[in-house]
Design a protein around this nucleic acid. Structure first.
Length: 397
RNA sequence: GGGUAGGUGGCAGAGCGGUCAAUUGCAUUAGACUGUAAAUCUAACGCCUUCGGGCUUCGGGGGUUCGAAUCCCUCCCUACCCA
């Protein structure tokens, strides 16, 4: 994997670049739609290509549990398996350590709303109840967890995550990290950060080891992940450490605040703390961020890559992301609306179907409704990022 | 005409003397969703409320009882069976 900067903005930290992999190129800034289980829900690989994406993000944890990397390797790797010729990045499973661990324990997502209920949870309360739900145990060595599918015990470590990602044959691997809960305090965040650093070194070593054995994975890039939560000192410390390692690129992960507003506000601030420590000539990926305003601001702060489930998940739930904001197509308001989702959009959904039809499909529980909105939302995202690239090119951003 | 089983909130369907404004599912309405445990989740869903509570509901009418969706009488209606 190689990265080349084609142009750096004079107005901001934004830059135009290109990532070259053995599965094609990717112009940056770029957005990866998320295909966790080697499937971008409701779409085919051909759809993704037609929408115009050059890369997708799949997941190590999920594919390890099902169908297992052995099978995917046997089928010729992820690209062949899902018949996708473009770039594939694989998340390491680090996020699942959070989402299936503290995410469930604390009843929070990565970017929670202000939730007094969640905040008031104290580890000592309801111990038995919590213990039953606990699916994850983190040690220095790695993470013991129970499968969310069948409860069987598994172990994931930096070495194992890298090995799985190599078997999957992704173009961009992510280091195995520990993602904090928004409710973690300074000490907990620090501990997770230190563990992430320790694991980062082990990920690099694991990758090199395989490389030396002349396995044909050497085209794979490996991205280190900056953690440190909402704390400036930790974010800087983490960026400094991770930025100094021999990674091919960098991910910025974790949480930026303990509430929604907090996170929104702190995101760009945090990027500004981090960015000076990351080598300029390497790509930077902001993990899991996907609201359009955040994407636009983060690109100006120097981010090259994004991935997020937001456009696809929300699409399946009836939300169309349009130039006029988000529309909920489940609403009775749209039952007789002849307009397309977005009059300015050139996607096949908007070219061929009315809001009334899509509204009906949602109310009738037809799966095609989800497909139509997923397609549109992703089309909108792709276009949105395209426009930003054009903006950088034309010295407007 | 005779027999049997029934009639419960928009629908389906629990409850069969007090803890029942009535379990549950669906439908409806609103909200949420940011490295996907997500075609998911949360909430509201008789009327009024100063959120303590108040008021009118379980086919209609009458009765028994301190108390009835629940028991009795009667009428109406539905389904099935026999003539």
């Amino acid at each position: 994997m190689q990265f080349k900067i084609l142009k750096s903005s004079k107005k901001s930290l934004a830059r135009l670049g290109v990532i070259k992999t053995s599965h094609g190129e990717m112009l940056t800034p770029a957005f990866f739609p998320v295909a966790t289980q080697a499937c971008l829900k409701t779409l085919t690989s051909q759809d993704i290509q037609q929408i115009g994406f050059q890369g997708i993000l799949a997941n190590t944890y999920h594919l390890h549990l099902r169908p297992g990397e052995k099978i995917i390797k046997k089928m010729g790797g992820l690209h062949k398996f899902m018949n996708w010729q473009g770039v594939i990045a694989t998340d390491s499973g680090g996020f699942q350590v959070f989402s299936l661990g503290k995410g469930i324990e604390h009843k929070v997502g990565k970017i929670p709303k202000i939730s007094p209920k969640a905040r008031s949870i104290k580890p000592s309360l309801n111990f038995d109840d919590r213990e039953n739900k606990k699916m994850v145990k983190i040690t220095e060595d790695g993470v013991y967890f129970r499968s969310h599918l069948d409860g069987t015990k598994h172990f994931l470590s930096p070495e194992k995550s890298i090995k799985i990602q190599q078997d999957l044959g992704s173009d961009i691997m992510f280091a195995f990290d520990e993602c904090n809960s928004p409710l973690d305090d300074f000490e907990q965040t620090k501990k997770a950060m230190e563990r992430t650093h320790y694991w980062a070194e082990r990920c690099i070593a694991a990758k090199l080891k395989i490389k030396n054995e002349k396995l044909k994975n050497k085209g794979q890039g490996l991205f280190g992940i900056v953690q440190g939560g909402k704390y400036k000192s930790l974010r800087m410390q983490s960026a400094k450490f991770i930025g100094a390692q021999n990674f091919d690129g960098f991910g910025i992960g974790g949480v930026f605040g303990e509430s929604y507003g907090d996170s929104k506000k702190n995101l760009i601030k945090a990027l500004n703390w981090i960015m000076p420590f990351l080598p300029e000539q390497k790509p930077r990926h902001l993990l899991g961020i996907g609201h359009l305003d955040d994407i636009a601001a983060a690109i100006k702060a120097g981010i090259d890559l994004f991935d997020c489930v937001h456009p696809t998940r929300v699409g399946r739930h009836g939300i169309a992301i349009t130039s006029q904001g988000e529309l909920n197509l489940n609403k009775p308001l749209f039952t007789a609306d002849k307009k397309p989702l977005d009059p300015k959009c050139s996607c096949p959904t908007c070219q061929n179907y009315s809001r009334a039809y899509i509204c009906h499909l949602f109310r009738a529980g037809e799966i095609t409704a989800m497909r139509l909105l997923t397609y549109h939302n992703l089309w909108f995202f792709r276009q949105f990022v395209d426009n930003i690239r054009t903006g950088i090119k034309n010295n407007k951003i």
